[in-house]
Amino acid sequence: MLEIECPWCGACDQSEFSYGGEAHIARPKTPADLSDQEWGDYLFNRENPKGWHREQWCHTAGCRRWFNAVRDTVTCRIKAYYRMGAVPPEEDGR
């Protein structure tokens, strides 16, 4: 049972959350202009890293807000949380 820190509600048990997979896969603005391959890449292909993974979670049984987390896929340690639309912590230069 992981402990996940909802940016709105604070730390809660993982069973209150649902998982959304890899974050920052933006929906293409004009899908019609994409080739089958490019569309397929958006739809199916994933980084699936062993180590730090930026991913989406939703506090389904709480405030129902989606947010991002940076979690290690081996140890399950979570090192950062940030809201939708925010700059991922590693890249913001702080």
Binding site: S18, G20, A26, R27, Q56, R64, R65, W66, M84
Partner: peptide, 13 residues
């Protein structure tokens, strides 16, 4: 419901 909510929050804020 979750599907709509997800699009709204993550893609179309």
């Amino acid at each position: 419901l979750n599907w709509l909510e997800r699009w709204l929050q993550t893609e179309w804020p």
